[in-house]
Simulated assay, not measured.
Amino acid sequence: MSDKPKVAVLGSGSWATAIVKMLCENLNEVGWYIRKQSTVDYIKENHHNPNYLSSAEFKMEQLNISSNINEIVNYADILIFAVPSAFVKAEFDKITESLSSKIVFSAIKGIIPESGLIVGEHFNQKLNIPFENIGVITGPCHAEEVAMERLSYLTIACRDMDKATVVSNCIKSRYIKTKISDDIIGTEYAAMLKNIYAIAAGVAHGLGYGDNFQSVLMSNSIREMKRFIKKVHKMKRNINNSAYLGDLLVTGYSTFSRNRMFGNMIGKGYTVKSAQMEMSMIAEGYYAAKSAYVLNEKNKANTPIIDAVYQILYQNKNPKKVFVKLTEKLD
């Protein structure tokens, strides 16, 4: 593979926009698929995304931007998917171009609702893309801080370390530091699970729990994450690395975290539907909570925090009563 491959991002949200900005630091041209033609037209005229990270300015000569997904798939050697997990199947159903020679990276931190799989497993099992051609881009990294060019760290995971290195080199810059990993399954599960724990942190805050409890909740969350991931994909990993613990902490504590914001609203008394309607962005942890709970019915890891979030979001249990019980299970 060329050291300067053709790379394209699929998605128009804040994280997709941030990844395009990162790539533009290193590549002469970046492909960008955006579903709405009106958004494409706006970016071409005004040089920034009208809906997300509007402070990030783009040079149009660097962008191959289109609302035709097949045009962008045909253009690129490496495809980076950054659409909400709930919309992945609908976007893939539009693709008629062959993916057999493509390298596909997921920047999606969630579960595909239709299959109940993390994105990498969905690519492999449902689309027959070999694991050697699948990768994951994971945090800790908030799109808003990328837009402000604040120092951030990313982990690029792929079974083929050469491909991970190529993508890493395309993304790193003076404000983005990268490391590579071969734990594609573990890092992606961690990226999915931390959204559930961030919802729990938000619920706790909304209910009036303080910093002391939040620290205990996060400490228990990383241990619960370790137990869960070990059940689904056993291999040697350091759960305290930034792709696991770091991503959990920033999502659980940051004011930029949409999952924490969603949980905070639930803790303050919003219904799930009213909280979703008030937020302009999707809280991936909502979908992840159900998928993780269902998967763990088979794997039987000890997951009291996931169970508590599931009970609140899907069984309409009272958050205050659920958290009173949860506090007795933490240490």
Rank of each mutant, 00 (worst) to 15 (best):
K163T: 07
V20P: 03
Y253N: 13
I306K: 03
V88E: 07
I103W: 11
D93T: 04
Q62K: 15
N46L: 06
S100K: 13
Y75Q: 04
K230G: 13
I108H: 04
S54R: 11
A18R: 00
F123D: 00
T251G: 08
S215V: 09
K273F: 10
T187V: 09
K102L: 08
A204M: 01
N296L: 08
I43H: 02
I69M: 11
Q37K: 15
S14K: 07
K329Y: 07
H205S: 14
A191D: 07
G116P: 05
N318M: 08
H205C: 12
G186L: 07
P113S: 00
G269Q: 02
K325M: 10
N264G: 03
S14P: 04
E57I: 15
L313A: 08
T271F: 02
M192W: 00
M225R: 01
M1F: 12
Y244Q: 01
K290W: 08
A157V: 01
S115R: 06
Y175G: 05
L63T: 08
V40W: 09
S152G: 12
S152L: 09
Y153N: 13
Y197P: 04
N124M: 12
K268T: 03
L295S: 12
T271W: 01
E97A: 13
I156T: 07
M277W: 05
K325E: 15
I305P: 05
K177E: 11
E278N: 11
I184K: 01
G202C: 07
L127P: 06
D247H: 06
S242Y: 12
G13F: 05
N299F: 13
H142I: 01
